[in-house]
Amino acid sequence: MIRSELIQKIAEENPHLFQRDVERIVNTIFEEIIEAMARGDRVELRGFGAFSVKKRDARTGRNPRTGAAVEVEEKHVPFFKTGKGLRDRLNGEG
């Protein structure tokens, strides 16, 4: 399923809404999650999962081609942990 198919499904269930409003609603949800993580916040959606930010320490990496040492700066990466409800559903328990 891709974004446009998700929008389509929501639009079909809500015939009283304009398609463009459904697009704005769906986009707002994903945008809000990214903005939260960009601030360093967590987004916890019970039964679905939690989006959080993990810190990766600075390290000395290597260019795999030349073997030269390169300093890699500290960085922050997005992380998603599947919620219990969804994990159970994937395994047919719920």
């Binding site: 949800i29 809000e32 999650i33 939260a36 360093g40 916040d41 967590r42 987004v43 959606l45 019970r46």
Partner: peptide
């Protein structure tokens, strides 16, 4: 270090 929920969305 805030935690957002369904309510915030």
């Amino acid at each position: 270090d805030r935690t957002l929920t369904r309510m915030d969305l």
